[in-house]
């Protein structure tokens, strides 16, 4: 179980990385933490001509607030994101999702950008990004563009990134007063990819009504999706509303089937986890920015 031969290219700067991406295009895999690419290379499921190691590009590792947006570099390690007070304060949904990502040992190396690039349908970080309406910044030599998270994920392991583009940053809308969010998931074992994951967000008026509510679903369809709960705007932020909204999300979902779970079971999990998460989000919205 050893990788097929490849050319190793180490980029020391972003320009070098983009240069290499331009040179190899779809024949290259960019290597960040390697928590997903590594196994695929070892199993020879991925056989790029070149592996472009972007880890030395320090400019891609930062976490910075930019007005109403928090920008995390693609190379930001999951462990560093988890320890970041800025993320805890500004993107609490991500902070709540991160402990579900892999394990202590993989978070030590795995990156936010790598997870988004890999686009596993049940991965937590893509779900959080979609649920919050975040964006993915991609660059190719001479051009950068920003893609809405909802448009970025195309399907299982498929994204809107062009072969010569590098994901360089993720942009997270910062939490505002009156908004609450909650993340939850279920897997057979702790740290496994989720059978179902939910990311709830809600804004509650001073009078206790919902002015915004959303429920992101991971592991349910072939990409992280956002259930349309606009019909619940104006409804009271109660347990009954949470259950109703989750039930609607479950009914409207088009779940995948695999050996781990049937479509019916995935719908059930959306109902159960969704209701719990929405209820928690309502509570938090009512309390303070979470």
């Amino acid at each position: 179980m050893k990788p097929a031969p490849f050319e190793y290219c180490r980029a020391d700067t972003l320009d070098e990385a983009l240069e290499l991406m331009a040179e190899f295009g779809s024949d290259a895999s960019a290597l960040a933490g390697g928590m997903s690419l590594g196994p695929m290379l070892n199993m020879r499921l991925a056989r790029p001509a070149a592996v472009i190691d972007i880890n030395p590009v320090e400019s891609l590792a930062g976490i910075a607030a930019d007005g109403g947006v928090l920008e995390t570099g693609a190379l930001c390690r999951q462990v560093d994101a988890l320890a970041s007070p800025l993320i805890a304060e500004s993107v609490p949904l991500l902070a709540e999702a991160l402990p579900f990502v892999g394990h202590f040992q993989t978070r030590n190396r795995g990156t936010l950008g790598g997870s988004v690039c890999h686009a596993d349908p049940s991965a937590e970080i893509p779900l959080a990004l979609v649920a919050l309406g975040g964006e993915v910044v991609v660059q190719r030599k001479g051009r950068a563009r920003t893609i809405a998270a909802d448009d970025f994920f195309d399907g299982i392991f498929a994204t809107a990134r062009e072969p010569d583009e590098l994901v360089t940053a993720l942009r997270w809308p910062r939490a505002t007063a009156g908004t609450g969010c909650a993340f939850d998931e279920i897997a057979q074992r702790q740290g496994d990819f989720a059978i179902a994951a939910v990311a709830a967000a809600a804004t509650v008026d001073p009078d206790g009504g919902l002015s915004a509510v959303s429920l992101g679903l991971g592991g349910i369809e072939d990409r992280p999706v956002l259930a349309d709960l606009s019909g619940f705007v104006g409804a009271p932020a109660t347990a009954e509303t949470a259950a109703g909204a989750a039930a609607l999300a479950a009914d409207r979902a088009d779940p995948i089937e695999d050996p781990k779970a049937s479509a019916a079971y995935r719908r059930q999990l959306v109902r159960v986890l969704g209701a719990r998460a929405l209820e928690r989000a309502f509570d938090r919205a009512g309390a303070a920015p979470c």
């Binding site: 179980m1 050893k2 190793y8 180490r10 390697g34 928590m35 590594g38 196994p39 070892n42 199993m43 592996v51 190691d53 880890n55 462990v79 394990h103 202590f104 040992q105 993989t106 030590n108 190396r109």
Partner: peptide, 27 residues
């Protein structure tokens, strides 16, 4: 396992415990 699940190969690199089967020596 050589696919990053079992943790047997974990080593400390620059202060952090990580999988050595998911890292290339040249890195």
């Amino acid at each position: 396992c050589e696919h990053g699940v079992c943790g047997a190969c974990t080593v400390n690199i620059d202060g952090r415990a990580v999988r050595s089967c998911l890292r290339f020596a040249v890195q």
